[in-house]
């Protein structure tokens, strides 16, 4: 029997101002799988990610690693599910990089010497130099900031990692570097993105969302090559597939 990292059944969510963001979402993600959630802006991708660790709570049921997500177990769930936000400025709120990366482990009451080790490991996993530790986030470039955010999430050693547009606004070199880092991660990955080349590189499975619903769920290469489906939901077939590159 397969172990499921995430099982979502009939999840719906309406924002306080009345906007319906999610409508009866069903999604299963086996452990260790890497899936992409693609769709136009406003499709509900970010909202879905925010449900994974209970920041937002809609109706329906969510199971994380076979544990039902409930108010009482939120601490445990947040240890398991890390979220990488789209704007690193929202995620790095401490005066220095070190404190930002240590913030998660400190909240999980990890012992002090362990924190040191985790911060170092997370920074090197995210492809960052040790010397960055004492710097302030506002002195960093966007690429560095995004990687520090990733390190801050990795320091919690999550089993499941949700990412919101990890490659947006990055220049090609930084984007490439980040994709390499992501490919090297061991956690179950759920990536919400417009960057279809990233999806082709990293995720074998793709879910297509639009207007708060799931429209398609299947193998990445097949789905992204379907030009009618892509067009209908405001996306386009990635250039590399059109031209026949990246054939395995």
């Amino acid at each position: 029997m397969t172990e499921y990292a995430v099982r979502i059944i009939q999840l719906s969510y309406t924002y306080p101002d009345g906007t319906r963001a999610l409508e009866k979402i069903d999604l299963d993600v086996p452990c260790g799988e890497r899936i992409a959630i693609v769709g136009p802006s406003g499709a509900g991708k970010s909202t879905l990610l925010l449900h994974l660790n209970g920041v937002l709570q809609g109706t329906g049921s969510i199971k994380i690693l076979n544990q039902k997500l409930e108010q009482s177990g939120l601490r445990e769930v947040r240890r398991q599910v890390g979220l990488l936000f789209q704007d690193p400025n929202d995620q790095l709120f401490c005066p220095t990089v070190y404190e930002d990366v240590a913030f998660g482990p400190l909240n999980l009451t990890v012992p002090a010497d362990e924190i040191q080790r985790r911060v170092d490991k997370a920074l090197s996993d995210a492809g960052l130099n040790k010397s960055i530790r004492s710097r302030s986030s506002h002195h960093l470039s966007l690429g560095e900031r995004r990687r520090v955010s990733l390190a801050a999430v990795l320091a919690m050693e999550p089993a499941i990692l949700g990412m919101d547009e990890p490659t947006s606004n990055l220049d090609p070199r930084n984007r490439h570097h980040l994709i390499e880092v992501i490919s090297g991660l061991k956690a179950t990955l759920i990536i919400a993105t417009h960057d279809l080349e990233l999806v082709l590189d990293v995720c074998p499975r793709t879910v297509l969302m639009d207007q708060g619903k799931i429209w398609a769920d299947g193998e990445t290469r097949k789905m992204l090559a379907d030009s009618r489906l892509m067009d209908a939901h405001g996306l386009e077939v990635p250039l590399s597939l059109k031209l026949g590159f990246k054939s395995k």
Partner: peptide
Amino acid sequence: ERAERMHSAMLSRGYSGDFPVI
């Protein structure tokens, strides 16, 4: 709006009211 996003980022990393000091 940014404060709200930041708050969800804090919650996501296990924040529960204690701002740790190193």
